[in-house]
Amino acid sequence: MKATQCFYQDGEHKWVAIVRDPARPDCLIDTNEYLVSYNGSGLLLDPGGAEIFPAVFSALSAEFDPAALTGLFASHQDPDIISSLALWLEFNPKLPCYVSWLWASFIPHFGGSAETFVAIPDEGMEINLNGLNLQAIPAHYLHASGNFHLYDAKAKVLFSGDVGAALLPAKSDNLFVENFDAHIRHAEAFHRRWMGSNEAKRAWCERVSRLNIDMLCPQHGAIYQGADVERFINWFDGLRVGVAVG
């Protein structure tokens, strides 16, 4: 089973990370799922692949009533992001899934019907979680051609999907980045290869530098906090991406 760690709390407003599954087969990439909860309602961010649904579901249940989930948010269309959709819909057929309009007709291959999807336009949109305003921030081509991050201005948390992802050695299980320079080595090859556009990366770095961010939470690896957030944005800004040898 996965572990849950609440890393932000202000009364009924919480951010919970669902991380590290010791029972996960090595062939599956390790993923972080995040729950934002506000006044008893929850939004699950990048709910994960079908194979890890049991682990995510049970970890979530320990922290939060899954029946109180009011939606799913998928940063993009990858299998490690949203192939569990059919199972979440078995649990609650009415659960909406927020996703880029670009993928709204692709993801139904994993499950769901036309009513399931709330298509996010390219410029992004506001998502209201029981009174909490969340913002879908465009991150197109980082790495998917239709891609969104989710910003919580009140908690100053940015969920950044695959941006900031690090493929860490099996033994490292810190929730937060401890040593930026050591950590970023595990992120470099991933960003060079997966992130497709230097132009899009530039635009994203400018866009998120204008946001007030305490914690930047990627879908793989550890969370950047405090000064490491800016460090990461500067590092990413200087990295040449879209590189594949072959």
Binding site: M1, A50, E51, F53, P54, A55, F57, S58, S61, A62, A86, L87, E90, F91
Partner: peptide
Amino acid sequence: LISLLNRAQEESG
């Protein structure tokens, strides 16, 4: 679906 839901059921108690 049944097998994954069963596992979710077992693991979540």
